[in-house]
Design a protein around this nucleic acid. Sequence first.
DNA 1: TCTGGGGTCCTAGGACCC
DNA 2: TCTGGGGTCCTAGGACCC
Length: 422
Amino acid sequence: MIALVDCNSFYCSCEQVFRPDLFNKPVVVLSNNDGCVIARSKEAKALGIPMGAPYHHYKKVMAFHNVAIFSANFPLYADFSSRVMAILNRFSDAVDIYSIDEAFIQLGGLTEDVIGYANTIRSTILKWTGIPVSIGIAQTKVLAKCANQFAKGLPDSGGVFALTHPPVIDTALKQVSVGDIWGIGRNHSAMLKRHRIHTAYDFKMHANRQQLLKWLTKVGLQVYDELNGLSCINLHDMNLPRKNIQVARSFRPELTTIDDVQAAMATFVTRAMEKLRAQQSLVQCITVFVRSNPFQQHAQYYRKALSVGFLTATNDTFVVMKGARMALKRVMVSGVSIKKAGVVLSEITDDASIQESLFERSTVNPLMAVLDGINQRYGRDTIQVANQKRYTQKRRSPQWVSSRYTTNWEELLTVGLKDSQI
DNA sequence: TCTGGGGTCCTAGGACCC
DNA sequence: TCTGGGGTCCTAGGACCC
């Protein structure tokens, strides 16, 4: 038996832990640059604020309904995530972390009272971290995802729902739209509906595997099998090293000179290489990309990417930065302001399996370990490339960011008496 | 004024080889 | 005059996820 444990409105819940006055109130969390809504509390959803909505489109609605707004505080969310996952490890031997706010756990041989067990998990997480979760239970991951939707949606489910009895499964799947099945996105759902497949039940009952393969590729067929109770989706292990590492940001205001973009790139390469070394890998290719604002009505949309390969795999920030600089010179054109830029590291290898080049020794720079050590101990960017400053200084700081209550000594929650009570 | 960031996997089709 | 068949590898682009 598999349980999907999913934190409710995760980012909002993290903020609410330190703001109990906001429990059961509309809360949203905004992306970088306070651009888009990336999390909404139940109450905010009820106001009709969609996921991914640009903040400025909903500014008035939010002000009118007194919605509490937060700028994204990822260090805080990452810390809460690891606390929740640590608790899950106490309840199951096999925890597959699927994203920052959800994990699949095996319930093993447990057959009796899975609901009771799930309720215990749920209340423990709530008590120890303050984060409410929903738990869906089923034979397969896709069905567990469906069960989770009911756990979230049905008020009297108490946050736990099991799809384990065949008649219940079919009744439930008739109420799930194909587009709401995990793994069936917008495009595929539109196509299925054109072929009169509207619900998860219709999909499950479709007889023609060949046709499904043609429409949805191998991946869609796996979803189909899982709906039919055949477990076949294996998750990429979150602990395995990434095959690509991307760091990208939007700029506000937009950047117009190559020097400014260069400075931003220096920061992106630094971050990406830190991630690379953290997973003990080497990289052999970097892609640099820039783009203008696609929403701009008057100007022509510009986007361009360029990759640079290295003779040998490396973990040296300075080597990669040099490659990025070369690439950047060739993707920038004058007169275009850059709205977003970033880097992608690819051709990533394990640093134990270095391919020595005929011409060059692999570039594993021991200086990097020293640098990482200092920055880990004394804080990010204690030592940095001079050019990074230019980017950090230009960046507008987010408006509504909360404290890093759990990861920074300077920002602990302070408790005190009001003046009147002293 | 103002629209996020970071991943994975799959397939079709071209390049190239014998 | 006439120009095969079969395989692998790579890449761009599409689809999906949170």
